[in-house]
């Protein structure tokens, strides 16, 4: 286990790089996630790896921050956000976009199951096309996402068999997302602490199950900046355990829609309509 001072250095360094909060209770997580990195980088222990980080090895620090992130995801995770997209968001977009393609951003997309789930919905839905940009801090999960290759276990979590048949090709023991869906999603490295300007204004932003790992100050700043990237009619979707309440005034919960947020002026319009 790391000494208190080394743990403090590590948690401050990681927070600065990725926003991830490592409380003192996360000692087990640090050991289990950094041990493989220590091994592949040729260090005798996690402690030796942190020593090298403390000498100012920025590349190693970046790899450590990636290794400490949580990549848990699956197709159509939690279902509700995808139902909300199909039943509430898509009809609104069809009326406001006048034939333009929707712009959707999946922030912290991990290995791609979330953007590909959306791509499946869009393909099954007539009258709405979209460009999806999907970002994550971590290069290795993005490589997997771009390849669109999933194990038998992964394609059985959350995915109806009809969708497997319709949207995947089998290659031996693995399953590859169809080229049509791969074309709909662009994967890019992206850090939630860095400027969002390059993504442009979005119609919908998915940012689920990532802000729970950040402290209040970081959450508030990111939510403000996400609100800035939304079109006036745009929607933000957060994870089931996340909210904007008490963190920003730039976004409000959409009544009756769990996990869905919009700009206050858009909600006024909805109420008036």
């Amino acid at each position: 286990m790391l000494t208190e001072s080394k743990f403090r250095f590590l948690s401050e360094d990681v927070k600065k790089r990725s926003g991830l909060m490592l409380g003192p209770e996360k000692g087990y997580l640090v050991e289990s996630r950094l041990s493989p990195l220590a091994r592949t980088e040729g260090f005798a222990s996690v402690e030796a790896l942190v020593d090298q980080m403390m000498r100012g090895d920025a590349a190693l620090s970046a790899r450590a921050a990636e290794a400490l992130a949580t990549h848990e995801t699956f197709f159509f995770r939690d279902r509700t956000p995808f139902d909300v997209f199909a039943e509430t968001i898509a009809p609104v977009l069809k009326t406001v976009l006048h034939g333009r393609k929707a712009k959707i951003w999946c922030a912290a997309c991990s290995s791609g199951q979330e953007p590909y789930s959306l791509a499946m919905l869009l393909e099954e839905m007539p009258g709405l096309d979209a460009d999806i940009v999907a970002t994550d801090l971590c290069n290795s999960v993005l490589e997997k996402a771009r390849a669109g290759l999933y194990s038998q276990f992964e394609v059985q979590r959350g995915l109806a068999i009809q969708r497997l048949v319709k949207h995947f090709e089998q290659t031996g023991d693995t399953w590859r997302i169809s080229p049509r869906l791969r074309q709909m999603v662009r994967f890019e490295v992206g850090n939630l602490l860095e400027d969002f300007g390059k993504y442009g204004k979005q119609d919908v932003i998915f940012c689920r199950n990532v802000l729970i790992y950040f402290d209040i100050e970081a959450k508030a700043k990111i939510l403000d900046r996400l609100a800035n990237q939304l079109q006036p009619h745009g929607y933000l979707i957060l994870g089931a355990a996340e909210t904007v309440v008490g963190l920003t005034e730039a976004l409000k919960p959409v009544p009756g829609q769990r996990g869905l947020y919009a700009r206050p002026e858009a909600l006024e319009k909805i109420k008036a309509a």
């Binding site: 279902r79 038998q152 059985q156 979590r157 959350g158 109806a160 068999i161 009809q162 497997l164 048949v165």
Partner: peptide, 23 residues
């Protein structure tokens, strides 16, 4: 599916997969 199956689990399976398919 053509014969009338509603879902399909590829072995090996675990509780999580069965629950996901039941859902």
């Amino acid at each position: 599916l053509r014969a009338g199956a509603d879902e399909y689990v590829m072995k090996p399976f675990d509780g999580e997969i069965i629950e996901s398919k039941f859902a």
